[in-house]
Each structure stands twice: as structure tokens, then as C-alpha cells.
């Protein structure tokens, strides 16, 4: 919060090492290790029940781990230093219906030790200043989500944990949300985003971690994850006169409907394949090429395509 640097401020914002969590006989987290540097934005992807929320609650010190270590800006989760250094946006956050937005945010500011004067600016920043003095019970879901984001910005945290931050937001709100996340990252806040909105996360994060059944199965930049997965490029051909039989007979692949054929090819064979297609001349009226998407990657690493 101040300009001077202490040892913990120069190190990683978050270190998770060998973390395990058991609920009775169910192992919800198994040997999870992660590290986030200041200003780094990491997407945490996984199915429902993959352990994303559990991981966040352990980092926040709300639950205690069965084994393993967590360091939040050099402090133990749940300690006042760790609580001061972290911010949290729960999934589908709800506030007391009888409080106004300003009252709710003022409470959080006073608890966080942030100046109460900053509340007006933050309400403005997330775009709910007009409704600030109306009861939260009358607010839309998107507005409540924005208020939740405003409290994340209080007191310039070292790490922000956002659980499904875009759920219930319209596209413009999502755009605003990611603009705010970028701004936080520029100020040195590490941001961990659990999300299902794959396409948004793709452009908006530095690193992607994929969880599956309580384990981290991938943790790298998007480019390196793609290279390692060696996923094929998809080519979709539209045949002349809506008749794909001829094209299918000559090139193989998979017929999608009467008029189209889908081909898969590795990146290095791409040009060769395109040459074959061009050789068919008028038979093919259109070619669409799709590089592997985050969704394909996600399926690959989360094990959905290998059963």
C-alpha cells in the first residue's frame, strides 16, 4: 500500500506448494502447486467440481488444507497480513438487500483500512455511481457483480482472486471487467481468474492453469500449451451445388452435412493440404480455417477427448 519495499513485496504474490484437501474420504485437491508473480494474470480453468473454488478458499484461509503450504505475499493464509494483501470476488456475490451500495462499500473500506473517501471514486469506476444510494435489493445481478468488483479494488491488494467474475454480465460489462483487471495487473496486483468463459480468458491472461479432478494438469502460456498439445487445424470446405460427395471422395475427412466436409491436419501439413484443395478447382466454393481454440486445448488437457 505504501511505496517502500519490504522483502515480501519483491517476491511472488502467491505460492502454492503441494496442496491437498480432503473432505472426509473425498480428495478435492491433490498435490496442487502454483506460483503467481506481481502483475501476472492467470486463468484457472476446469469443470465444476475440479477444485477451483476449493483452491481459492484455501488461499483465502477460509478453509484449512490437509497438507501443503500456501504463501500469500509472504504471509500465512488467514493472518491479518494475508487478508490485507488479498482481495476476493465470490461467485455470484450477494450483499444485504437493505443496504445501499455506498453503505456496503463503505463497510468494506473501513474493514480493509482503506480511506472511506475512495468509495465514491470506486463506485464511479465500476459504473454504479448512479445507483449508489439505492438499496442493493433493487439492483440487477450485473450491478451487484460490479459492486463486488469495486470491493476487490479497495486498498490495492497484492493478489486478487476472482471466482467466475463474468457470470451474469452482459458483453459490455465483461469488456469493462477485463479493462479493470488489466489496470490492476498494471499496478502490480497478481490476478487469479477462475472462469468458464474460455474465449475471453484467451486474450486477457498471461498464463493458463487447467484443473481436473483436483489436480493441475496444465500450467503455461497459451502459445506453449498449444505447441505441446499438437492439436490439429480444422479446415471446413463448402462444396459446389451443396453436394459434398465428390469432395469427400477425393479428400476424405468427415462430412458435416450435405454441403460441407471437415478436414483435420497438423500445422506442418497445412500448405500441402491447401494445395490439394486448390487442385479441386470449382468443386470447392469456400474454405474456412480454424486454428486450435482454447476450447480444444481445454478439452485436450482436461481429458475430455481421451476417454
Amino acid at each position: 500500500m505504501t511505496e517502500h519495499k519490504n522483502p515480501s513485496e519483491t517476491g511472488d504474490a502467491l505460492i502454492v506448494d503441494g496442496l491437498c484437501k480432503r473432505h472426509g474420504r473425498v480428495q478435492t485437491l491433490e498435490n496442487v502447486s502454483l506460483a503467481l508473480k506481481p502483475g501476472e494474470r492467470m486463468a484457472l480453468l476446469g469443470h465444476n467440481g475440479a477444485g477451483k473454488t476449493t483452491l481459492m478458499k484455501l488461499i483465502l484461509g477460509l478453509w484449512s488444507p490437509s497438507a501443503g503450504q500456501i504463501s500469500v505475499a509472504g504471509a500465512v493464509p488467514g493472518s491479518s497480513e494475508a487478508r490485507r494483501a488479498s482481495a476476493y470476488l465470490p461467485e455470484a456475490v450477494a450483499f444485504h438487500r437493505a443496504l445501499t451500495g455506498r453503505e456496503q462499500l463503505t463497510l468494506f473500506a473501513r474493514l480493509a483500512g482503506a480511506p472511506v473517501k475512495s468509495v465514491d471514486g470506486l463506485l464511479e469506476r465500476v459504473g454504479v455511481a448512479d445507483a449508489a444510494d439505492r438499496r442493493i435489493g433493487t439492483w440487477s445481478k450485473g450491478m451487484r457483480q460490479r459492486l463486488g468488483l469495486a470491493q476487490v479494488l479497495l486498498g490495492k491488494p497484492r493478489i486478487a482472486l476472482l471466482d467466475e467474475p463474468t457470470s451474469g454480465l452482459d458483453p459490455i460489462s465483461r469488456h469493462d471487467l477485463y479493462a479493470i483487471i488489466d489496470e490492476m495487473a498494471q499496478h502490480g496486483t497478481a490476478v487469479l481468474i477462475a472462469s468458464h468463459a474460455l474465449t475471453e480468458v484467451e486474450a486477457r491472461t498471461d498464463r493458463i492453469a487447467i484443473m481436473r479432478k483436483g489436480r493441475v494438469v496444465a500450467d503455461d502460456t497459451l502459445a506453449r500449451l498449444s505447441a505441446r498439445a499438437e492439436l490439429p487445424i480444422r479446415l471446413k470446405l463448402t462444396a459446389q451445388n451443396d453436394d459434398a460427395s465428390e469432395v469427400h471422395a477425393r479428400l476424405g475427412g468427415k462430412r458435416i452435412n450435405g454441403a460441407s466436409v471437415e478436414l483435420l491436419c497438423s500445422p506442418e501439413n497445412k500448405m500441402e493440404r491447401l494445395a490439394h484443395i486448390a487442385a479441386l478447382g470449382d468443386l470447392v466454393v469456400d474454405v474456412e480455417m480454424a486454428p486450435p481454440s482454447l476450447e480444444d486445448l481445454y478439452r485436450h488437457y482436461s481429458g475430455e477427448d481421451r476417454t
Partner: peptide, 17 residues
């Protein structure tokens, strides 16, 4: 119980209080 059901309790408890 009310705070807990709304999901506000988890958030409140992440504050230094």
C-alpha cells in the same frame, strides 16, 4: 445464517476482521 446463505459471509471473512 443469512450472510452465509447469500454468500456474503465468505467475503466478509476475507477482510482483516
Amino acid at each position: 445464517a443469512g450472510e452465509s446463505e447469500r454468500g456474503g459471509l465468505a467475503l466478509l471473512l476475507t477482510y482483516p476482521v
